[in-house]
Design a protein around this nucleic acid. Structure first.
Length: 396
DNA sequence: ATCCACTGTCATTAT
DNA sequence: GAATAATGACAGTGG
């Protein structure tokens, strides 16, 4: 890799003061991004990630490159050659420290770090507090890093999801966070892989402040993209999986059977962090599907109920119509009966041949089919006794 | 600027 | 009692 400053004595820039060079090329936001962990929740709910500041407070730490990256196992990011080169130039770390101190005067690290404490920085790891010894260089989901004592990435296929680090080695110039790439990863890779610090804009107007502004602008853009919950939730988990070099796609993680999943966990010698992330991804994926099913069911239930309401309303209208028709029919029958009644009484005559008064008599139909004309005052008690079997015909 | 539908996520409950 | 599914509630997003 092109450690042009440290390794290439033939470089025309090898005499450039490292501090100055880095000051020009490696902006404070870049530096602060090397913090090893950030809150992971989208909604900024408290998580159990331990924070670690990148820049050690103790000056003694600065002489030790490993302690410089205290808490972060960056071996997954550094090539062996990088590490050798870095450790071979311990002296330069003093300069780096001085640089960092100098840079801290020019900007507000807290302000910059807050960018990554916002949802974009959500790594999606829901870690238990007892995992607090694990530190992460997971920044804005996509940046990489290994935890506690992981000196090398698992060799058995890990990196199937990630594996883009090597590609970025090709970058030989300072880049701001690019599309689809979270800023921390980009800047970390700049720091780790791009050592052409001297190839910076030499334009006088290119100041550190300008660099910072550009970076902030870009990082905010990336943050916005990362923040898009609906469009990028899937890719968010993919980013996380990438970051931890999990060799399975999100779809695979979610869709595989319980047995397959457990077998996969057992066989792949995954770190606690990876297992945790895998379980989280699977849980989220399953729950997402469950939520979709649930909503579909609820929607169907609502539609069915609406259909029921519609059907019942139709049935009600039908019954009302039927009731109306029956009422009309009853009225017609009553009218017919009434006219029949009057007709009968108009034809009836008593013993003296006089017409029978319908107000004093009623037509009584007994259960055996006999029809009598009886006085009203006699008919009523009898009818009360036997009103089920016999019908009284009375003029209304 | 506001509303609303949609979606993912978490916490809780049900199975 | 653990594992999983179902569901309510919430927040973010886009139309």
């Amino acid at each position: 890799m092109g450690n042009t400053i440290l390794n290439n004595p033939s470089s025309s820039h090898h005499n450039i003061n490292l501090t100055q060079t880095l000051q020009n090329s490696f902006s404070p936001p870049d530096a602060i991004l090397l913090r090893t962990d950030y809150p992971t929740q989208l909604n900024s709910k408290p998580r159990h990630l331990q924070r670690q500041e990148f820049f050690p407070q103790s000056s003694s730490d600065t002489t030790n490159p490993e302690s410089l990256f205290h808490g972060s196992d960056l071996t997954g990011l550094f090539s062996a050659a990088d590490l050798r080169n870095l450790t071979a130039h311990n002296d330069n770390f003093d300069e780096i420290k001085l640089m960092s101190l100098a840079l801290e005067e020019g900007f507000n690290p807290v302000e910059v770090s807050q960018i990554f404490e916002e949802p974009c920085s959500n790594s999606g790891l829901s870690l238990n507090s007892n995992q607090s010894t694990t530190s992460y260089s997971v920044c804005c989901e996509d940046s990489v890093g290994y935890s506690s004592g992981v000196k090398s990435a698992p060799s058995h296929g890990l990196g199937a999801v990630g594996g883009h680090c090597q590609e970025n080695i090709k970058h030989s110039h300072v880049e701001y966070p690019a599309d689809g790439q979270c800023p921390t990863e980009a800047t970390l890779q700049q720091f780790l892989q791009n050592h052409t610090y001297n190839q910076l804009p030499s334009h006088p107007a290119y100041t550190l402040e300008h660099h910072q502004q550009m970076w902030m602008k870009k990082s905010n853009e990336v943050k916005d993209r990362c923040h898009n919950s609906t469009a990028t939730n899937r890719s968010r988990d993919e980013c996380r999986a990438k970051a931890l070099r999990i060799p399975f796609s999100v779809d695979e993680i979610v869709s595989m059977s319980v047995d397959s999943f457990n077998t996969m966990l057992a066989k792949n010698q995954l770190t606690e962090t990876q297992v945790s992330l895998l379980r989280d991804i699977r849980r989220r994926g399953k729950n997402k599907v469950a939520a979709q099913k649930c909503r579909k069911r609820k929607l169907n239930a609502i539609l069915n109920l609406e259909e029921d309401v519609c059907n019942l309303q139709t049935q009600k209208e039908s019954l009302k119509k039927e009731h109306s028709q029956c009422s009309k029919l009853i009225n017609q029958i009553k009218q017919k009966l009434n006219s029949l009644y009057h007709d009968i009484f108009s034809r009836l005559r008593d013993d003296q041949g006089r017409p029978v008064n319908p107000c004093q008599y009623v037509i009584h139909c007994s259960s055996n089919g006999s029809v009598f004309i009886i006085p009203k005052h006699l008919a009523k008690p009898e009818q009360k006794q036997d009103n089920r079997k016999e019908q009284k015909l009375e003029i209304t």
